[in-house]
């Protein structure tokens, strides 16, 4: 079962299907490599959904445990990243339902949208705009955060997001549009022309 032989050079050049067959043959080194390859994807999805740094590692571990246990059932009907993202999404939603924010998952958006903080212009630090936006994204309802992460950060297509979350394509587009409009509205409240220029400069520097 445990094959911790040093085959790093071999595994790093493997494609997903070769990696899967290696894991199914009991090569744990290949599994370590798979975790390394997809941990960013998993941490982005679970992190955005559960929003608990202290429990993030446990939830991610649970995701990869499920990946390992169900790898034999994986058929090449979708990309491995889509399949892993589906497991990460379902595990995170179950976590929210079980331990923390069941109401947030099941309720409509309106309550969560009301939670978005209101910043007043005079309290606002110009250089903090990106930080402010990131904080605002974290305050969005869970469905909005999910589609934003999958579409913009992980660059999944609408069809793939539909496969992962089970949301219809129209809903995904609507969430993306509404999230963007919402943040834009909030920015218009807090940002004056000067700070906008400053942020643009910072963005271009990066």
């Amino acid at each position: 079962m445990q094959h911790f032989v040093c085959s790093c050079c071999q595994t790093s050049s493997m494609n997903d299907s070769e990696l899967i067959s290696q894991i199914l043959n009991g090569n744990m080194n290949a599994f370590t490599f798979l975790v390394n390859r997809y941990q960013k994807l998993v941490v982005h999805i679970t992190g955005r959904l559960i929003q608990r740094h202290d429990e993030l590692e446990d939830v991610c571990q649970e995701v990869f445990l499920k990946v390992f246990q169900n790898l034999g059932k994986y058929r090449n009907e979708c990309k491995l990243s889509t399949w892993i993202a589906t497991i990460a999404y379902n595990t995170s939603i179950n976590y929210l339902r079980k331990f923390k924010k069941g109401d947030e998952v099941d309720s409509d958006d309106s309550a969560a949208l009301r939670n978005l903080t209101e910043y007043r212009s005079d309290e606002f630090e110009k250089a903090d705009l990106h930080q402010y936006l990131r904080a605002q994204i974290e305050l969005l309802p869970v469905q909005y955060r999910t589609v934003l992460t999958l579409f913009h950060l992980e660059e999944f297509s609408y069809q793939e997001i539909e496969q992962i979350t089970g949301m219809p394509e129209g809903t995904i587009k609507s969430y993306l549009f509404r999230a963007k409009s919402l943040l834009k509205e909030k920015l218009k409240f807090v940002v004056d022309e000067d700070s906008l220029k400053l942020v643009k400069e910072i963005s271009n520097e990066k």
């Binding site: 941990q39 941490v43 982005h44 679970t46 992190g47 955005r48 740094h53 993030l56 590692e57 991610c60 705009l129 990106h130 936006l133 990131r134 994204i137 974290e138 934003l148 992460t149 913009h152 950060l153 963007k180 943040l183 834009k184 920015l187 218009k188 940002v191 906008l196 942020v199 643009k200 963005s203």
Partner: peptide, 18 residues
Amino acid sequence: ELDQIIEKSFRTEPGFQL
């Protein structure tokens, strides 16, 4: 400009660490 800034922040790494 607002669109650009927002889209950039959407693509920014959220900073979750393992």
